[in-house]
Amino acid sequence: MSRNLPVLVAALLFAVGYGLCATQYPAFLTTRVVGNLLTDSAFLGIVAVGTTFVIIAGGIDLSVGSVVGFTTVFLALAITRWGIPPLAAFGLVLAAATLFGAAMGALIHVFAMPPFIVTLAGMFLARGAGFLLSTESVPIDAPLYAAVSDLALALPGGGRLTLTGGIMLAVFLAGGVLLHATRFGATVYALGGSRQTTALMGVPVGRNTIAVYALSSLLAALAGIVFSLDTASGTPLSAVGVELDAIAAVVIGGTLLTGGQGGLPGTFLGVMIGGLIQTAITFDGTLSSWWTKIATGLLLFAFIALQQGSVALAGRSGRRARTTAGAPVVRPAEARA
């Protein structure tokens, strides 16, 4: 129960926040706002899915923002200068990013290096590589891009679920299945509980660690593709600091930074709360958009306090259960025999 508390609180907060916005700006009740909320959150959401895996597995990935930036530049150059068809370029960059993530995972596992340092190095590497390709913004004018920007599912009520918003929802769904209903998902939680114990229980730790970081980078590259589709350009400066936004969304969604607990529904809510704040500030029109950051910061504080509180509470009730409920829980062996 207390494990789900942060998610419930996040859901409640989102609902209350949305309700408040709706009383202020009736447009919030239209599907148009809902559609835009999804589209605007799309690329952060995709990154946050990967970050959720990494954090539940007890790690951290600081390189995702740089991977997004690299991806956008690479795509812009590949499509406009090198004449690679967009779909092939997508495939290339996804594969390259996956390898990049796998290499970081391998370093973390083989040399028992802290993920923070390895992915920090990865962050500089990817960002630097992006700037090597181009130091300025490169517009993309492929027909595919034009076509995609018009591609959307019309929602009843005039809203549009864009392709990018759809991709995010699909990634959340697929990620949810992977995390919550497969052996790999169970292993991710196990790794976050204790790498050593997981190894002692006979689960291959190295392979799974590598897979987690590869997945995170793969999703970052996918987010980069979405970003590039949205902006129809590529710049090495794109998505600076997005890794931190993703971590914030994951934590607000109730995933413990220490690993082993959390889930994707919470991350989805975390991303949506961030998007909601941004939308509300846009609607207001008078506030500086940087208020988004301040609100996110305050929320993070509140949520971490809530998590610590509920963990402490769970600990206390657990101990009480040990003394009072101990007897009925354990049926004496002889009772059965």
């Binding site: 939680y189 196990a190 509980g193 204790s194 114990t197 997981t198 002692l200 229980m201 082993g260 607990q261």
Partner: peptide, 8 residues
């Protein structure tokens, strides 16, 4: 020390 994972 129980060699299992308390979070699972």
């Amino acid at each position: 020390e129980v060699g299992l994972l308390p979070n699972l």
